[in-house]
Design a protein around this nucleic acid. Structure first.
Lengths: 242, 242
DNA sequence: ACAAAAGTGTTGATCGTACACCCATGT
DNA sequence: ACATGGGTGTACGATCAACACTTTTGT
């Protein structure tokens, strides 16, 4: 197994991505369960090629895991405590999974050094239209699935904390920005936008004032009405202005 | 010369600090002129020991250059483009300064690799009371001096851009925070705070409203008056509440 | 006609800004 | 007394939230 080597990747530097999706009034995060014994959950992560920029690397990693490019992506925090190492956990994994690490999968000393060493992680969060994503496993993943933000399992290292911080950053950014539209399909109703805000901030907004606030940003264009068959006035569809 | 080696430092990862000071209505940045021919200007920089966290490393570097601990310090951005390398510049330096790199100062191959390789930089900015700082040179610095934010020389790599981004981040943070008090001495008058804001944002504020805004934050305590000898009402001194 | 949900309008409070005035200090 | 600059109070306008009302849709 020669997954890693510091000729091609920058050593001791990782990228961890908190990928947010939204569906049916639930905010979700894409999480990998590693293909080892012991129920190890991890954020989609990767390393930086010597030949690519850090933002480029994050986009590449996201493309690998979601299948889509042009993702809204933002760095939000670095994680670099000295004791932030995989060593104990990974030795445990390797110990529990000895049968995997034989033959071709045998870890070289260099791989072992690489994998168990100290890492500084660049934390990115991404906002995606969940319908466009095809969660994609790598050979290290047993599964790659969406988890409700309130039902995140206990994850490896400080990944739980990374998700919390990402959510905080997302909320802060929303005060001035409407990046959150990246979580919705191309067209949407005002109620869908409001539901989304209410889900993210976990509080309710007055319908009329919310509409006013969003429309006054002048970033949406009104399209035709959406007839759902419900016995009430049909809402307009909106789209992000280009 | 064995300044660097990746046994003790994390390779390819650097910390660059934009240290802001304030004096006589001027916002200043602490900048090093490197001890080589060719007028190379650089931000105070350093590397991360394998045994320390990234924030710890930034504090250590600042302590080395300013002599003070307990500095207000904040990460604001990473710089990690693929073409962000010292190689061309440093080969040029080394070429122009051959006489330095002999005997003890001879660069080992490892040092050369280290120094000319690609780096990802963690950008921090610091706010310090300029009166408490003793700008301190390392053996690599010809000088370490304060430069007015509007008179920054052309610097190595992307350090000019790093300063610009740091100032932007500082301004953004000030909207909600009053961290800027870190640039002032222990006690100060309201006018001094106002001058500081006006210098940083390059615009003027109404005296009375400014006072109201700051006092309503409830973070200052009023002390005795400051008698300057001027023939006008003596202003109060203020101090940050503990 | 009616219920349900979307859209619009109006009022009142709150916040920031502009203006006016008063107070202290040394000449 | 007066000039100078510090401190405080008031009034106006803009912005935001609460309430009320109208419109549209399918049964």
């Amino acid at each position: 197994m020669h997954l890693f080597n510091n000729k091609s990747y920058i050593p001791q530097l990782a990228i961890d991505c908190v990928i947010f999706g939204y569906q049916e009034k639930e905010l979700k995060v894409l999480i990998s369960k590693l293909n080892f014994k012991g129920d190890i959950y991890s954020l989609p992560s990767g390393f930086i090629l010597q030949t690519e920029g850090i933002d480029e690397a994050a986009h590449r990693i996201l493309k690998e895991r979601t299948g889509i490019s042009n993702i809204f992506l933002e760095h939000y925090k670095n994680f670099g405590q000295a004791d932030r190492t995989n060593k104990a956990i990974l030795e445990n994994i390797i110990d529990k999974n000895k049968e995997y690490f034989v033959g071709d999968l045998m870890l070289s000393d260099a791989d072992f050094e690489w994998i168990t060493g100290r890492f500084v992680s660049l934390g990115y969060y991404a906002l995606v239209d969940i319908n466009k994503v095809t969660p994609t496993k790598t050979e290290l993943d047993e599964s790659m699935e969406w988890y409700n933000i309130h039902e995140i399992p206990i994850m490896m290292m400080d990944h739980n904390g990374m998700i919390e911080k990402a959510l905080e950053s997302l909320r802060l950014n929303l005060d001035t920005n409407i990046i959150v539209l990246n979580l919705l399909p191309e067209t949407f109703t005002m109620k869908e936008v409001q539901d989304l805000y209410e889900t993210i901030f976990e509080k309710e907004y007055a319908r009329n004032n919310f509409q006013k606030k969003i429309l006054e940003l002048n970033v949406l264009e009104r399209l035709e009405k959406k007839f759902t068959g419900a016995s009430n006035k049909a809402p307009y569809l909106y789209r992000f202005k280009k």
